[in-house]
């Protein structure tokens, strides 16, 4: 299509190339089992990255999501431990809380004309603090529904398991794609990222869109928290520290411009899978330190930033 889509193609190419390298070294990596695990293990990151993609395309950033995931886990665990409320009701309560939390941050960003970085940084501390208020220790979850959710999977050909968590992630991405690429709200998000003043002149309801963007991110963070609590069967206030940064990394590796206004939801999925793939490779290798994941991700990020700068220059020279 256009050079705007180039980072997306680059992301896909890098993912396929990385997979090819993995396959040559460890042929076992090309199996539905590995793919199934890739989806399951990165489900919470993928879901939160969907929200982050929309935030970043709108020209913002949401640093609170890691803490919100931890809060979600602790909240669910504590409520399930101390009350007899059905888990599904707890989920609904939680999503309402995190969505409202995101909306409140969006409202502050718009009304006070504050940088999203500062507002969501405050949100990050708030949510982390709130999880400590609920519990200092890890709270195990032993609800029958949790066991059911953990065991729910579809067996793919090759005996790989497409788990419920993996499916929730895929669904989140699909919903994200529809919202971003097929609705007026999505176009408004791009408009906001392209230039807030211009967007306002063109009739975009900037305030409403900003609130909705952060509410969406809050919702996705809550959903990610649910998935993470199912994945770990516990709520722990120290969990998922720095996940917001991993999510930002996944979005950027997925080809979205950190300055906003340009990017694709599908790219984010590939970004998450690329990061997961690196981790899988290290597990397969067995001798490498897991910190190599960070080094490779750092290198990839740097590469994408350079690529985007290059494209920007290319576009100016056109």
């Amino acid at each position: 299509m256009s050079i705007r889509a180039l980072p997306l193609y680059a992301t896909i190419a890098i993912f396929l190339l990385a997979y090819l390298i993995c396959y040559i070294q460890f042929p076992a990596m090309l199996s539905t089992r590995v793919i199934g695990n890739l989806l399951t293990d990165n489900a919470y990151l993928g879901i939160v990255a969907v929200g982050m993609t929309i935030v970043i395309i709108s020209g913002g950033i949401d640093l609170s999501v890691g803490s919100v995931i931890a809060f979600s886990g602790v909240f669910i665990a504590v409520v399930l431990r101390d009350t007899g409320i059905h888990p599904l009701v707890v989920f609904a309560m939680l999503l309402a809380i995190t969505t409202a939390f995101g909306a409140a941050m969006g409202g502050m960003i718009y009304l006070l004309a504050m940088p999203p970085f500062i507002v969501t940084l405050a949100g990050m501390f708030l949510a982390r603090g709130a999880s400590y208020m609920l519990s200092i220790d890890s709270v195990p979850i032993a609800d029958p529904l949790y066991q059911l959710m953990q065991r729910a999977y579809y067996v793919m050909p090759g005996r790989g398991r497409l788990t419920l968590l993996g499916m929730i992630m895929i669904m989140a991405v699909v919903v994200g794609m529809i919202v971003l690429h097929r609705t007026r709200f999505g176009t408004n998000v791009y408009a906001l990222g392209g230039g807030e003043a211009t967007a306002r002149l063109m009739g975009v309801a900037v305030g409403r869109t900003t609130v909705a963007v952060y509410a969406f991110s809050g919702f996705m963070a809550g959903l990610s928290g649910i998935v993470f609590s199912v994945y770990t069967s516990a709520g722990y206030p120290l969990a998922t520290v720095g996940v917001e940064l991993s999510a930002i990394a996944a979005v950027v590796i997925g080809g979205t411009l950190l300055t906003g206004g340009s990017g694709y939801m599908f790219g984010t999925l590939i970004g998450v899978l690329t990061m997961g793939l690196i981790q899988t490779y290290i597990v397969f290798d067995g001798s490498l330190s897991s910190w190599w994941t960070k080094i490779v991700i750092g290198g990839l990020l740097l590469m994408f930033i350079l690529l985007q700068k290059g494209l920007l220059r290319l576009r100016i020279h056109q």
Binding site: Y190, A191, G194
Partner: peptide
């Protein structure tokens, strides 16, 4: 107008 949107999106925004 918004340079990052398509011509059609710019024309029909809203």
């Amino acid at each position: 107008l918004l340079p990052n949107l398509t011509v059609a999106e710019n024309l029909t925004l809203g």
